[in-house]
């Protein structure tokens, strides 16, 4: 029996073979890191510079709005952003609008604070979660204490020295939002446009391009996009976190997909050629 040509078989490649290849392409670089170089894009550089030029002792309002599904992209950038703030002597006040986020944020805070030797309620405050999204973002312009009477652990804000004199957007020279949803749009509309707060955004890779117009119009001052953006921010801070570790795997998987696409197109070309010559299985 004559063997079937390779090209038609490649065109009908079982997707499980593709899945196995992707699994290997992801796992091997994570187990055996290559540490490929990472160049920093102007958008991430702009985000870094915006934070970097804040004077020591300045306050930053950070809204970290993500859940486990997109934590792989946003958690590394949150951690490196927190560490950057701590290194600059800034005082971040952190909140979240996602119910499943507090656990993730606590982990990020613990990691960043332990690494930089910072203490809760002296060097940073975590307000916790509040439902309402848009109404909360609006309410922060009037009174933080109305939205968050206590911090995440139940301490009244009035008894936290770090929070004295800081009760609305007007008291924060910089707002940072890490989100993978339209929460970022609300911060642009309300914090950046209505209250004219300088705003830096972190977003998932898929959503990053949605915010390019705001960057070019100056409504946001910096944009960190996806795991690559997180890796770039880690490079700028001389850190090695999950952003940089993940880039090796991402590189290999991208190359694999390109190879698969090229193979598929070659198979298509050859299949078309075989039909024209009247050959075949």
């Amino acid at each position: 029996m004559a063997r079937r040509p390779l090209a038609p078989r490649l065109l009908r490649l079982d997707r499980r073979v593709i899945f196995i290849l992707v699994a290997l392409a992801t796992a091997i670089p994570l187990l055996f890191p290559v540490n490929l170089p990472i160049s920093v894009s102007p958008r991430v550089r702009a985000a870094f510079d915006t934070v970097d030029k804040q004077p020591a002792g300045g306050y930053v309002l950070m809204s970290l709005d993500y859940e486990p599904d997109i934590a792989a992209e946003l958690q590394p950038m949150s951690i490196s952003m927190l560490r950057h703030c701590f290194r600059k002597g800034l005082k971040p006040v952190i909140l979240t609008l996602y119910p499943a986020a507090p656990g993730l944020i606590e982990r990020a805070l613990n990691e960043a604070a332990d690494a930089e030797g910072k203490k809760r309620n002296e060097d940073y405050v975590f307000l916790g979660y509040k439902s309402g999204s848009q109404s909360v973002i609006l309410g922060l312009g009037e009174s933080i204490r109305t939205m968050f009477p206590t911090d995440f652990w139940g301490t009244p804000l009035d008894s936290i020295p770090m929070m004295r004199g800081h009760n609305s957007y007007a008291d924060f020279p910089l707002v940072i939002n890490m989100a993978g949803s339209r929460i970022a749009d609300y911060y642009i509309q309300i914090a950046a446009t209505r209250y004219r707060r300088p705003l830096v955004l972190g977003a998932t890779a898929v959503m990053t391009t949605d915010y390019y117009p705001y960057l070019s119009s100056g409504q946001i001052l910096g944009l960190i996009g996806g795991m690559k953006g997180a890796a770039e921010y880690e490079v700028l801070n001389n850190l090695v976190g999950n952003g940089r570790r993940g880039m090796d795997a991402q590189s290999v998987v991208h190359v694999l997909i390109v190879i698969l696409v090229i193979v598929g197109n070659l198979a298509l070309l050859l299949t078309g050629g075989l039909r024209r010559r009247g050959g075949g299985a």
């Binding site: 593709i18 899945f19 992707v22 699994a23 992801t26 997109i70 934590a71 698969l260 696409v261 598929g264």
Partner: peptide, 18 residues
């Protein structure tokens, strides 16, 4: 949830190939 989201990587590869 993390697992489901991670499965997207496999689907992207098979969708791109097709």
């Amino acid at each position: 949830v993390s697992t489901m989201f991670a499965l997207l990587a496999f689907f992207i590869a098979s969708a791109a190939f097709r």
